[in-house]
Design a protein around this nucleic acid. Structure first.
Lengths: 146, 146
DNA sequence: TCTAAAGTATATAAAATCAATAGACATAAT
DNA sequence: ATTATGTCTATTGATTTTATATACTTTAGA
């Protein structure tokens, strides 16, 4: 698994919407500013997430985005897979991979399978409800940083 | 972690050298043919592995490559890291990452840490001795495939 | 000594992916 | 109407990945 900037933005955007889930729609600009992403690039990411059914939008003057489902029904894993592709470290983990010279005797494959399964196990049971709660908790703690 | 073709070639080349560990040096051409890699590209990969201290070479007419250490002393993890870079799914897992807007409150970071640790735990304890033995075992089994 | 077979080194090109920007358009509140 | 928003498509620039090309060095053996 490799998280690109695009994937990173997508995850942070969904998290932002999760944090503001009870407050109606949120604009691209507001999200972009908070997650420190280029707004035009974020635009495309949000559009993609919308087409994937993860978020909904409202157009017009007081438009913006909101989650299609409550935060507890969205996992980190689904967003990553959707935006950055499969979690497998190499394509041969899926059957039907034509480039592998000898699929049956490839001794690396079981290792990649294990990595894939361990990764999935982690990201597929982290929900945005959990993450949003952590954000809110840390926001309430004064930092006293310089 | 993402395995590129280059990384894939490197792993298969090291495995090939592990399988033939007791037979002296092996030529680039022989490796290239067996692992199905472009020989000129493999050349660069082998050179890199040599500079990394993983393999040694002998020049001249009956030249070739061999492992610097016995197969049981080389892990999958070290080769991957050396050729394809860090195992972390995203750079922010390492401290000192400048792009993360708020490192202290980034709630994704612990997740990436877990993925990184799970991945490391798997690939760092697979040695090429184990893999080579598996290859040899499967080579002795008739396949009866068409 | 000559030649052939092998590794060494650097440069370049081709292709793919990633990241970002630009500009025209559609929608809806006021 | 105006303004603030989302929608859509195209394009550009940068980087990485993959591969090829070319010249050079080394060594065994005839």
């Amino acid at each position: 698994m490799k998280i690109t900037h695009k994937g990173d933005y997508a995850l942070k955007a969904v998290l932002d919407l999760a944090v503001h889930y009870d407050e109606g729609v949120v604009t691209i600009q507001a999200i972009a500013k908070r997650i420190d992403a280029p707004s035009k690039f974020l635009e495309q990411v949000l559009l993609e997430l919308k087409r994937g059914g993860f978020i909904e939008s409202r157009r017009g003057k007081i438009g913006g985005y909101m989650l299609s489902k409550p935060p507890q029904d969205i996992t980190l894993g689904e967003i990553i897979r959707f935006v950055d592709g499969p979690l497998e470290p190499i394509a041969c983990v899926n059957k039907g991979y034509a480039d592998c010279h000898d699929l049956h005797t490839c001794v690396f494959r079981p290792v990649w399978q294990k990595v894939f399964q361990a990764t999935s196990a982690i990201v597929d049971h982290v929900t945005f409800e959990t993450l949003a709660r952590e954000v809110k908790a840390s926001e309430n703690i004064p930092t006293y940083s310089i």
